[in-house]
Design a protein around this nucleic acid. Structure first.
Length: 289
DNA sequence: GTCTATGTTTGCGG
DNA sequence: TCCGCAAACATAGA
């Protein structure tokens, strides 16, 4: 569920709520598999008396640094959320991990689908080191994108979703960026011209920045939907051009938006703006050409 | 009952 | 070795 803009929104909300500076008194775990490492017993033992120094983000990971060393990573996967409540609040269904602070407040990890994971580690490199560049970092230049695309022969969309290639893009922002750059998701990565790579680079940054400005994308009202801390919804949905807009007119050319499947993922394109015509080695299965 | 879902990992076969 | 694909994780909503 949450992609880079959503995780960033959560990190900012936690900071705005004054989480940095709080000291943990302990954690209670109600679904063991949410704790990726160490063991639940060790996790609960080690987390006591840890003081939060900072809350940040890397890719789709929320990164919590403790004073005097140690870090906690949280990955929300499909349906994870964070609730900041007072310790007296009744525990809701799906609140699988409860972190208690000295001041009587609690941070609760809520996750209906139970795919989310929490890590406690001395050195985050083993996990975060596998991530590709931050798309909004100056290190991520149009050339880095172009060369990275060129030295592989992958379908463009699955490559953008690969967190080891670039960190933080998910299904929503990838579809939006490809539409913005007018690139078909089934193009082969090494078939992109430098100009196309530049357009894609600009598009990625544009849709991510807009997503953050709008505090993330919330879709329906379902339980698996994005909510930031304090149950606030993002308002980026109206800014989406193709994602879950099947049949609606393309904002550029008015052709009806199509839904296709690419790399097992639901994918939304404008069949007129994003075409495969003229690219050898690309296949257009299931959608029109 | 059926299909779909904003994510990631693993194992298989080409 | 690289790549795409299917399945697995687990639950809710349409």
């Amino acid at each position: 569920m949450p992609e880079l803009p959503e995780v960033e929104t959560i990190a900012r909300d936690l900071n705005a709520a004054g989480v940095a500076g709080k000291t943990l008194t302990g954690a209670r775990v109600y679904w063991d598999r949410t704790i990726a490492e160490p063991s639940v017993t060790e996790f609960c033992r080690l987390i006591k008396k840890k003081k939060i120094a900072a809350v940040g983000r890397r890719g789709k990971f929320l990164v919590i640094d403790f004073t005097g060393g140690g870090h906690m990573l949280m990955h929300l996967r499909m349906s994870g959320r964070l609730h900041l409540v007072s310790s007296g609040a009744e525990r809701l269904p799906h609140e699988h991990v409860v972190f208690a602070f000295e001041d009587g407040s609690e941070l609760r990890f809520h996750d209906t689908r139970k795919f989310g994971r929490v890590y406690l580690m001395a050195d985050v490199e083993r996990v975060l080191g596998r991530l590709g560049p931050e798309p909004l970092d100056p290190m991520f230049t149009p050339r880095v994108l172009f060369e990275g695309m060129r030295k592989r022969s992958r379908l463009v969309k699955p490559l953008l979703l690969d967190q080891g290639f670039v960190a933080g893009l998910g299904n929503i922002y990838t579809d939006e960026a490809l539409w913005e750059a007018r690139i078909h998701p089934r193009r082969l990565s090494d078939s992109l011209s430098q100009k196309e790579a530049e357009a894609l680079h600009a598009a990625i940054r544009k849709v991510l920045r807009r997503g953050m400005k709008n505090l993330g994308t919330s879709l329906g009202t379902g339980k698996a939907n994005f909510y930031s801390v304090g149950r606030r919804r993002g308002r980026n949905r109206d800014a989406l051009k193709v994602f879950r807009r099947t049949g609606e007119p393309c904002a550029r050319c008015a052709a009806p938006v199509q839904r296709i499947i690419v790399g097992q993922r639901s994918t939304h394109i404008c069949p007129k703006c994003q075409t495969l015509k003229g690219f050898k080695g690309s296949r257009d299965r299931g959608s029109e050409g």
